[in-house]
Amino acid sequence: MADDKSLGELIDLQIRTNGPMSIATYMGLCLTHPRLGYYKNADPLGAKGDFITAPEVSQMFGELIGFFLVNLWQQMNEPRSFTLLELGPGRGTLMSDVMRVTKRAEGFANAAHLQLFETNPVLKAEQDKRLGQYLPYWADEIDAVSDDPLLVVANEFFDALPIRQFVKGEGAWHERQVGLRDGKRAFGLSPTPIPAEILPEEVRDAPMGAIYEAGIAASDVMARLAARVAAQGGAILAIDYGYGRTQTGETLQAVARHAYADPLAEPGEADLSAHVDFDALGKVATAAGLVVQPLTPQGLFLKRIGIGERAAALARANPSEMGNIETALKRLIAPEQMGDLFKVFVATSPGLKPIGVGA
């Protein structure tokens, strides 16, 4: 019976039946299979999970995001009703810190209608514990929002969306696929050449063997969000690891139990992700009519909006925690840790001037 099979066995069966599958199809099955997908079961976050996100490092991260959002809301003339949408809210830690600090801005919390886009039932329960008092609505679709102004927060969301990979061969590009070799999952290439014209101009003349990753799912999500924000007013804040110019290079990776793993070895048991092409997302947002700010390293963004001052205030209030606060601060802003690897992408409706980003 299918219910008795592991996700790996189901994937192998699908390959034997239908032939090799794209990287995007493979990632989609590994992460969001209705029963066995990685994001459908256990809690992947924190020390006991597979990775730790910035909100789990320190409350300072969410508090400063809250300050950033309040500043935008004030520039929008403090609408009495707006949608605050978080994509992939994890345990609700980030939004809990956001909502706690934004209570200090008169009117913000009452005006905010909180929406959470989440597919993991375990994480939904965690979110409800932390955010239930704000009466959130769990959206099943990215664009399931009202007609009010819209503020979107996406921390480490876009990196988990499926990508397609294309490899430059002799005179042509070919899509990289997952198939079976000697009964084991292996990467291979589709025999059908891909016309170079459909690839971005920046990569068409790449050398043989070069790999181009197309974040088609990420661009689709951005297009839907940008269309909403353009029509309703507001902004999109996305923080993730990625690059600012479309380029070649393989970034697909698997992480399990805080260590890198073979992405083909245990489908559904490891987190799969790829670096975000922020250049491509910016072009999509611009085409929708939004103003895209220069991509900014996370460390610089947080320093600009006051993480140093916030860390000092926390240390004064909690002297015994000074060491932990300094460690968390370094992890969030140091170039060799999260400070340079993670980038801050902001796209807004015309007229808004978001703080912390830009040259």
Rank of each mutant, 00 (worst) to 15 (best):
D3C: 09
K5Q: 15
G8P: 01
G8Q: 07
E9P: 04
L10G: 05
L10S: 09
Q14K: 12
S22M: 03
I23P: 00
I23K: 01
A24W: 02
G28E: 14
L36Y: 11
A42L: 15
L45Q: 00
D50L: 04
E56W: 07
E56A: 10
S58M: 04
M60G: 07
M60H: 03
E63N: 02
I65T: 06
G66W: 02
F68R: 03
R80W: 08
L87Q: 05
G88C: 01
R100P: 08
L114D: 01
T119D: 09
N120Y: 06
Q127R: 07
D128I: 13
R130H: 12
L131T: 04
L135F: 14
P136W: 06
D143S: 15
D148S: 13
L151F: 12
V153F: 01
D159R: 02
I163V: 13
Q165H: 08
F166N: 03
K168D: 08
E170C: 02
H174M: 03
V178H: 00
G183T: 10
F187M: 07
I194N: 03
I194V: 15
P195V: 08
P195S: 11
E197C: 05
I198K: 09
P200T: 07
E201H: 11
A210T: 07
Y212Q: 04
S219R: 15
V221M: 04
A223L: 10
V229D: 00
V229E: 01
D240I: 04
G242A: 03
T248Y: 08
T248H: 08
G249H: 10
Q253G: 02
V255N: 07
Y260F: 14
E266Q: 15
E266T: 14
P267H: 03
L272R: 02
S273T: 14
S273D: 00
D277E: 09
A280H: 00
L281C: 10
K283Y: 11
V284W: 03
V284S: 01
A287Y: 01
P297T: 05
P297L: 05
Q298S: 07
G299N: 10
K303D: 13
K303G: 06
I305G: 02
G308C: 05
R310M: 10
A317N: 12
A317G: 14
T327Q: 14
K330S: 13
I333D: 00
Q337M: 13
M338P: 01
M338Q: 00
V346M: 03
